[in-house]
Amino acid sequence: MLKLYGEDIASRLMIGTALYPSPAVMQAAVRASGAGILTVSVRRETAGGATGDSFWALIRELGLKILPNTAGCRTVREAVTTAQLARELFGTAWIKLEVVGDDDTLQPDVVALVEAADILIRDGFQVFPYCTEDLTVATRLVDAGCQVVMPWAAPIGSAKGIVNPGPLTLLRNRFPDIALVVDAGLGAPSHAAHAMELGYDAVLLNTAVAKAGDPVAMARAFGQAVEAGRAAWEAGLMPPRDFASPSTPVPGTPFWHAANS
């Protein structure tokens, strides 16, 4: 079973709560996905409003583990304070740590990320850092005390799938005891299965389900793909090769003569 910071999680799918056509569809999609962890964020509340209360009531009905994020933060200080606000709000030491380094790609600022992770871990947080597939960055995050590392497949919301499988495989090989989660850039269930087939422990996605024609059906499809990909990894995939190898036995082929071979 998936273990994150000592907690057993029944599903290897983590799902976001944003961008759905309605709150009811969000709830139905989350349930259909079978996800075990929900991501949420922290935003400014308006005076006289109770937007947060009504959203939080919807989330609590789902009864899942909550992973708050620091989405939109651009500096170490912003990310650290947002994480602390999230801990105050949600009563969890878990934080999906995001520090944006570029507006067009939403690429993580990995330098600020490592610094913020270090500060938060010293402050008692259990950090889920959203990073690139860079080996050195992942190493720094693990050195800082991250037990989970979450490299992107592709930029957030891009639906491109895994554009750089080689470095992701390298991370898996280098960190056999760290929980690795592909976070962001997945567009199709096959992309999620791909991540799981690389040996990743889980995937985190949002837009691909929320923006699907039928988010509930797509959520179910992603849940199935994650299970299929994990089962494939556990079964042991054969390595690819460059040349054909016949699957049907050659001896006994009609009209076959030894002299032809």
Binding site: G16, T17, A18, L19, Y20, M26, T39, V40, S41, V42, R43, R44, E45, A50, T51, G52, D53, F55, W56, I59, P68, N69, A71, T81, L85, L89, F90, I156, L205, N206, T207
Partner: peptide, 10 residues
Amino acid sequence: IEIVSPRQGG
């Protein structure tokens, strides 16, 4: 001062 509450997130 920042006053925040839970919101949708990915």
